[in-house]
């Protein structure tokens, strides 16, 4: 299971991989946090439950990232632990994190939204790979 960033001219590509689709979704969520700050600087002290539903895997990925972006914005939080289950187009998650502390996290950039550019949810020989470009 890994996450990474890839280049996009103006914005930022996020990628996650894992043995299952749910694990890959968890990893790309970590890539989202890493777009803002070093995930190791975030403490998993507060837990919240999230839910999304979409007619396709790709839309579900966009919805998942946009749900996290929304929660980060309105709760002023950063997340570092993600526990995801996906069943028939329905994603349920427990995510843990802490309020943004500018002195500690030195947040680099605010993520505005997940785009449909370079969007993929693919099964690979090793498991699943998911990716998306976010607007920052």
């Amino acid at each position: 299971m890994t996450w990474s960033h890839f280049s996009h001219d103006a914005d930022l590509g996020l990628r996650g991989s894992g043995r299952s689709k749910a694990r890959a979704f968890e990893q790309i969520a970590m890539a989202l946090t890493a777009a803002v700050t070093d995930p190791d600087s975030v403490i998993a002290e507060k837990s919240i439950s999230l839910f999304c539903e979409a007619p396709s895997d790709e839309l579900l990925l966009v919805d998942w990232l946009n749900t996290l972006i929304y929660e980060m914005a309105v709760r002023k939080m950063l997340f570092r632990e993600f526990s995801v289950t996906i069943t028939a187009g329905v994603l349920q998650a427990e995510v843990k994190g802490e309020p943004v502390n500018r002195g500690k996290h030195h947040p680099a950039v605010e993520v505005k939204g997940a785009t449909y550019t370079a969007l993929a949810v693919e099964q690979t020989n090793e498991g699943w790979l998911v990716q998306c470009v976010v607007d920052v």
Partner: peptide
Amino acid sequence: RGLGHQIGTEFLREMAI
């Protein structure tokens, strides 16, 4: 700010579908 970002997010999805 966040209001525009959310409007963009929601209508992009609705228009795509």
